[in-house]
Design a protein around this nucleic acid. Structure first.
Length: 892
RNA sequence: GGGAGGUUAGCUCAGCGGUAGAGCGCCUGUUUUACACGCAGGAUGUCGGGGGUUCGAUCCCCUCACCUCCCACCA
């Protein structure tokens, strides 16, 4: 693993030594690299990533969206896989039989292009090598670079069951692909035909509609005059692609267009070429409103024109070839690149006076998702899936809730795409992929079968040629949730683990993959492949798209080396929101790293305390102090909230709950409160406190484990003496830690008072050690809080560094204020006055403003009549408190 | 042309009918014996503009402006 990180590996940090004799095995700061890899191999060795528990017990199954086999982990992968791993670890700890299947995709075009680039560097190409040799080269590259990304997922901590690792070109998965093809073909849902498809001249293959990316581009709209026999001024047509005119075989007008009745039934002459073009009438394609109302018809290079040509029995002339160069049909332009031909044709039209106009025109240029080349509509023989019959059940599955999207709003997008779905071009003119299992015998009979045919079922011939095309990569990916389990065989894994439960992926492949998996799952297995799809946003750096040109790319492996895998994971989980983009910044990584260090040091402190005396096994029956009750209550509330948020796929909220509890309640709050108890003479109280500390640490580690698995496992070992077992420890759900509202109220008041005293110190310019006296007026509406505070007085004195606490009305001349419903008096023993008068005036002004608002509200009859009673009551109490506060401050 | 989402503190983002939140950044103080990757205190918001519904709107409805993205069209 280490090798993968290469030069980014973390430099040795200076480790600060603890004083001798105080060491409990944890250093002041830590290097995640010291234990991350170790724990991963422990888990793996112990089989923790494999489904555990009896078969038949509740299970939780996911399949990884298979990354490109030769790809590298980018931040988007890291994000999605972190979410999946959080789910997997959470469910595993809750006792589910968890299976998360890893694997990779052969990624047809992408992988083939990488290898072709290497060949080009060697001064050769795939055609020189030949199909077989080329495929061997790709396999060699796959062996060389393949699975790097899977190693990187280990580094991230993903608890994938490696014993079930799959690759889309594995023999059994290839068999599934072939079988799926055969089934669809037999059902008449796969057909072959000549149609205009999206052709990428750079990749040399057809691509599907989804693989074409529209890009707004400044182009030119050329208006060209064609001569028409018997019509003196001819006809003017407009085009953004003049080179295609060489393939025109007709002009078209709208049958009811009064502007062009003179063109009816006439014959036009194609400039340059001289071919006669019939003028046809077509109401479907021609828009009477647009331009001159006359359309050039180029059946071989425009999908709409092609369908019109079929309606009117027009021929098609291919003038641009698969390499993007003009064909022999283009006459003098043959062999020219399409864009060069465009330039020359425009020049010639200009010379001949046929170019009526060349206006700037914004066009949506179709480009290849993979290579960025301009897509050329191209008439060729391809294989298609008739998708409509597959889409209908898939639409119903989402309608009736068999599959749900999180967030729900994606349902709309899904429906609108599925309801307007068009046939899917699945053949690719590539060599790397699943070859189409169609065999043509010497007499032209086509056989499609699971096994290579030995004799033609029609004529008995034994001489076959297999179709040279391969399938679109997504054709195999759509089978992934069941092909990984051995489908079409009814394997034990398929029986037990299919359908899966949750699919987690970016919304960008909703159509490419998710929709097709639902269709394929229903078609081939009769069941939807998962019940929940969590579509997450795409990762951005701040509000910017991540891109190499901007230089703002965050490499997750670099980040792991710098901050640790746990910090990267926590950052990604905290950034997760329901929106379409997820903002990740380096500053947040550092924040997560700081949090890890915070936990580390808190654990260090707690572990020392636990060694100083006996720790009760259970808190049952022990008398708890108010701080004990408070922190346990907060712990329980946190546990419940975390589980609730995980149920709702709100990883940011879940992470935030744990972060806030650990840092601001356990560390800032409880640890400071128990220090005197731990050092004090009351051994029973200290013992209880140790029990509480142990419980809080143990639960926090468990709670946090899905987010930060390595660090928590490391500390867990020190805490429990059990190695590598946190991953299967029960997940805290807050059910065994009862809420204690009284303790929460009392300690809440305590903390508010402490803050007020500290603030008073700063405001009055007192040094941190200067004696401050506090009065608490016992005439409070809430007697129980006063009683509680009386027992907490020593603690209050300690935390706020008070010289004295008196439960009495403040003496005159002392600053008075009301916080948490309590009237306080504050005095710093010094000649100088307390807080500055401007500050008090400002506070008074704010109070007056709010009192004004509240009292007018409370005089409003409509408000009193219609607002819910608790709300009104709250407003009344607030007003009372404000008035007391005003009075108190006024006395100062 | 159709659709989805967004506009909240300097930055990145949560929240979403009942007195505005986090992280980072900023200011002040602080080596208090777990942690300076820390502790303590603090400042900062006409919650995009305008209407409406409501006792009450950052939150619901309408409208306008701007920004993202998706689909379709692209002679």
């Amino acid at each position: 693993m280490k090798g993968l990180l290469g030069p980014f590996f973390m430099p040795e940090k200076p480790v600060v030594d603890s004083p001798p004799g105080r060491r409990v095995g944890l250093e002041k700061t830590f290097d995640p690299a010291h234990f991350e890899e170790r724990w991963y191999s422990v888990w793996e060795r112990e089989g923790r990533f494999q489904p555990r528990g009896a078969a038949g017990s509740p299970r939780f199954v996911m399949v990884i969206p298979p990354p490109n086999v030769t790809g590298r982990l980018h931040i988007g992968h890291a994000y999605g896989r972190t979410i999946e791993d959080i789910l997997a670890r959470w469910k595993r700890m809750r006792g589910f039989r968890v299976l998360w299947v890893p694997g990779t995709d052969h990624a047809g075009i992408a992988t083939q292009m990488v290898v072709e680039r290497r060949l080009a560097e060697e001064g050769t190409d795939r055609r020189a090598l030949g199909r077989e040799k080329f495929i061997e080269r790709v396999w060699a590259w796959r062996r060389e670079a393949g699975d790097t990304i899977l190693g990187q997922l280990r580094r991230l901590g993903c608890s994938l069951d490696w014993s079930r690792q799959r690759f889309t070109l594995d023999p059994d998965l290839s068999r599934a692909v072939r079988h799926a093809f055969v089934l669809l073909y037999r059902d008449g849902l796969i057909y072959k035909g000549r149609y205009v498809v999206n052709w990428c001249p750079g990749c040399g293959t057809a691509v599907s509609d989804l693989e074409v990316v529209d890009r707004k581009t400044q182009g030119t709209l050329y208006k060209i005059r064609y001569d028409v026999a018997g019509v003196p001024d001819g006809a003017i047509v407009a085009t953004t692609r003049p080179e295609t005119m060489l393939g025109d075989t007709a002009l078209a007008i709208h049958p009811e267009d009064s502007r062009n009745t003179r063109l009816r039934g006439k014959i036009a002459v194609l400039p340059i070429v001289g071919r006669e073009l019939p003028i046809v009438e077509d109401a479907i394609l021609v828009d009477r409103e647009f331009g001159t109302g006359v359309v050039k018809v180029t059946p071989a290079h425009d999908a709409n024109d092609f369908s019109m040509a079929q309606r009117h029995a027009l021929p098609a002339v291919v003038v641009i070839g698969p390499d993007g160069r003009m064909t022999a049909e283009a006459g003098e332009y043959a062999g020219l690149d399409r864009f060069e031909a465009r330039k020359r044709i425009v020049e010639r039209l200009k010379r001949e006076g046929r170019l009526v106009a060349a206006d700037p025109y914004e066009i949506n240029l179709g480009t290849c998702q993979r290579s960025d080349d301009v897509i050329e509509p191209y008439l060729s023989e391809q294989w298609f899936v008739k998708v409509r019959p597959l889409a209908e059940p898939a639409i119903r599955a989402v309608e009736d809730g068999a599959v749900r999207f999180v967030p729900e709003s994606w349902g709309k997008t899904y429906f609108s795409w599925m309801r307007n779905i068009r046939d899917w071009c699945i053949s690719r003119q590539l060599w790397w992929g699943h070859r189409i299992p169609a065999f043509t015998c010497e007499n032209g009979h086509v056989t499609v079968s699971d096994e290579d045919p030995s004799a033609c079922p029609v004529c008995g011939s034994g001489a076959f040629e297999q179709d040279s095309d391969v399938l679109d990569t997504w054709f195999s990916s759509q089978l992934w949730p069941f092909s990984v389990f051995g489908w079409p065989d009814r394997t034990p894994d398929l029986e037990e683990f299919y359908p899966t439960d949750v699919l987690v992926t970016g919304y960008d492949i909703l159509f490419f993959w998710v929709a097709r998996m639902i269709m394929a799952g229903l078609r081939f297995t009769g069941r939807a492949p998962f019940h929940t799809v969590h579509l997450h946003g795409l990762v951005r750096v701040g509000s910017e798209k991540m891109s190499k040109t901007r230089g703002n790319v965050i490499d997750p492996l670099e980040a792991i080396a710098e901050f640790g895998a746990d910090a990267v994971r926590l950052t990604l989980a905290s950034a997760a929101s329901s929106g379409p983009s997820v903002s990740v910044e380096r500053g947040r990584m550092a924040g997560s790293r700081n949090f890890a260090t915070k936990l580390w040091n808190a654990a260090r402190f707690i572990l020392v305390q636990l060694e100083r005396g006996p720790v009760p096994d259970s808190l049952e029956g022990r008398s708890l102090s108010l701080p004990d009750g408070w922190i346990l209550s907060r712990l329980g509330a946190t546990e419940a909230a975390v589980n609730r948020h995980l149920e709702g796929f709100r990883f940011d909220e879940a992470a935030g709950q744990i972060y806030g509890f650990l840092w601001h309640e356990l560390c800032d709050g409880y640890l400071e409160m128990v220090k005197p108890v731990l050092a004090g003479a009351d051994e029973e109280a200290a013992r209880t406190a140790r029990g509480v500390l142990r419980k809080c640490l143990a639960d926090s580690l468990a709670l946090l484990h899905p987010f930060m698995p390595f660090l928590t496992e490391e500390i867990w070992e020190k805490l429990t003496g059990r190695s590598g077992t946190l991953i299967v420890a029960p997940y805290p759900e807050g059910t065994d830690t009862p809420r204690d509202p009284a303790a929460e109220a009392a300690v809440g008041a305590l903390r508010t008072i402490v803050t007020r005293v500290r603030n008073f110190r700063t405001e009055s310019g007192a040094s941190p050690t200067e004696p401050v006296e506090l009065w608490i007026d016992p005439k409070s509406p809430d007697k129980s809080v006063i009683r509680a505070l009386e027992t907490l007085a020593p603690l209050l004195r300690h935390l706020a560094r008070l010289s004295e606490v008196r439960f009495a009305p403040a003496a005159s001349g002392v600053l008075q204020d009301v916080v948490a419903g309590l009237t306080l008096g504050l005095l710093v023993r010094r000649g100088s006055s307390a807080e500055s008068s401007t500050r008090i005036e400002k506070a008074l002004a704010e109070i007056d403003a709010e009192v004004g608002r509240l009292s007018s509200k409370l005089q409003n009859a409509a408000y009193l009549a219609k607002a819910p009673a608790p709300i009104v009551e709250k407003a009344r109490r607030r007003l009372l408190e404000l008035e007391e506060k005003r009075a108190a401050l006024g006395k100062s």
